[in-house]
Design a protein around this nucleic acid. Sequence first.
DNA 1: AGCTTATGGTCAAGTAGCTTGACTATCTCT
DNA 2: AGAGATAGTCAAGCTACTTGACCATAAGCT
Lengths: 148, 148
Amino acid sequence: MQNSDAMALTAALLAAAGGLTQRIHEGVVARGFEGVRPAHGFAFARLAPDGATVTDLAVHLGVTKQAASQLVDELVRKGYAERRPHPADARARLVVMTEAGWACTRAAEAAAAEAVGAWAEVLGEDGVRALRAGLLRVAPGGPIRPSW
Amino acid sequence: MQNSDAMALTAALLAAAGGLTQRIHEGVVARGFEGVRPAHGFAFARLAPDGATVTDLAVHLGVTKQAASQLVDELVRKGYAERRPHPADARARLVVMTEAGWACTRAAEAAAAEAVGAWAEVLGEDGVRALRAGLLRVAPGGPIRPSW
DNA sequence: AGCTTATGGTCAAGTAGCTTGACTATCTCT
DNA sequence: AGAGATAGTCAAGCTACTTGACCATAAGCT
């Protein structure tokens, strides 16, 4: 294996991840959800199904809790999430999705399925499955944020 | 294929790309190159082997030419690149790597090979090859910058 | 119980990397 | 030669993040 092949793999990964994220985002916008960024989608993934605290979100997204708090502010302002008192800890607040948040999540999943479907036409269903399986094995708990 | 599988694939891609980028960056720093960001590495990829103009770089990185120009400023200030008059166009300037730039590139390739080597222990050499081949087929000219 | 330390969250201020807008110099096309 | 396109820079502004300080509550220790 040449060193340059490793760089090519890295570039291909970034290109694939970036392209897919972009397509999903476009699909979400096309379904009528404006003002949402891809990061919000990954926040939703952590909020579902039972909500999460700001600190949970911060860990999941790989940012400071202040940044996560600002992101929640934005989601609340746009009507996608709510802050509720935490049932077991008076310091914490449980962030839960509203119905609008769920609708946005469903839109993102549909858009993602559409984008991945285009890949299946190139690689075949099995190829996509193999790709996902391989990625899950090498990046089990990697950072969700690419964040250069 | 479930919709949620498509989201899992996206998350795995981001995690893999982010993790790999991060490891390479750490490897480059460990080899004594400070003050470089991953974006610089992808700039180097375009500068090699014959240099490039600021506009070329901007297209390659998916940013405005002002942003690319700032990035070149930084590379020049740190001694990794130089601006030369363009041999065929008096408006343009050819940005070329210095010897330090080449050394940094070699360090990045070594770090990348190391990081990918860890993957080969999980997937096997063939698995990594298959992964790269699949990614190259679905993301031929995707954006290098994930840039949410 | 009471004290100490750790944890969840917010407020405030600062920053890095990007953007848009305006401008000059040079090239290209007719 | 003139008109428009293109390479590059300067300047200003924005956005998503950061660090640092702070308060309220929880958990652990004696």
